[in-house]
Nucleic acid binder design. Structure first.
Lengths: 130, 130
DNA sequence: TCACCAGCTGATGATGCGATGAGATGAGGA
DNA sequence: TCCTCATCTCATCGCATCATCAGCTGGTGA
């Protein structure tokens, strides 16, 4: 029972971990606008194809995204609409605690290392800066 | 502009990272029931005091929790009610994608390493606050 | 059948992250 | 004042994680 709870916590942490990497999050953000193929995601995020594939596999295994093969292309999309809700909610919270997050250097933040060129998601911008 | 977005993604990833560690998440879960002192959290999560303190400092820096000193005790609570909402939403999503998350072994999950004894969650609720 | 393209997988190396243990700070009580 | 308790801080260490670099699979069109 406690075991169950511990398991639940571990599980949920795992879920959040899917969102906790800039590369994966960049992919998820790109998917907010709709299904995307790997190539589009690669172009949109600036990740290497290999790297993107790794993260996509992770997201897929975790059940956050679903893949559909079409010819030689694979299209990815959210597996559940609430993933999008979760991202929005995070945006809202972030708007208020952003300053704090900025200053959270306790455990250093991974390098940006992404975002190359506008391409792909014309709408990807849409950020609500604070 | 893209830079801004990259920054936003990094920032949001950082936010999620606050939730992505089992220890921190255990702390946050404990706080869902209300403000708690460090000792209570230590008892409730099974973390070492030092370790808990580290994670609390991280959560504090990130703006996810707020600390209040009272005598020699320090009480922690959510800094924003939406943190709770986020956790609930994650619960919901998890309920549906749990199977997938279970099987996500791509990047191994950290050890449970927590949860010692029942108490806390149930018993912990009435005491605190003076 | 062959060349090509989209995407996946596996190995490797660097490092960020989290746990631990010892010591420091600071409030309360005797 | 001295001691104790609650909490924080710092240094260290081991491991998980992520990015990169091959090389591989499988669908497509000629």
């Amino acid at each position: 029972m406690l075991q169950v709870q511990a398991q639940g916590v571990t599980l949920k942490a795992k879920l959040f971990r899917g969102f906790a990497d800039p590369s994966r999050l960049a992919i998820l953000e790109a998917l907010r606008e709709g299904p995307r193929t790997v190539s589009e995601l690669v172009a949109g995020t600036g990740l290497s194809q290999s790297n993107a594939s790794n993260h996509l596999a992770c997201l897929r295994d975790c059940g956050l995204v679903a893949a559909t093969q079409r010819g030689r292309f694979v299209t990815y999309q959210f597996s559940d609409p609430r993933i999008e809700t979760l991202l929005s909610l995070a945006d809202e919270v972030l708007a208020d605690v952003a300053r704090g997050v900025y200053e959270c250097t306790r455990y250093t933040a991974p390098e940006p290392a992404i975002i190359p060129e506008p391409a792909v998601t014309t709408a990807m911008k849409e950020g609500r800066d604070a």
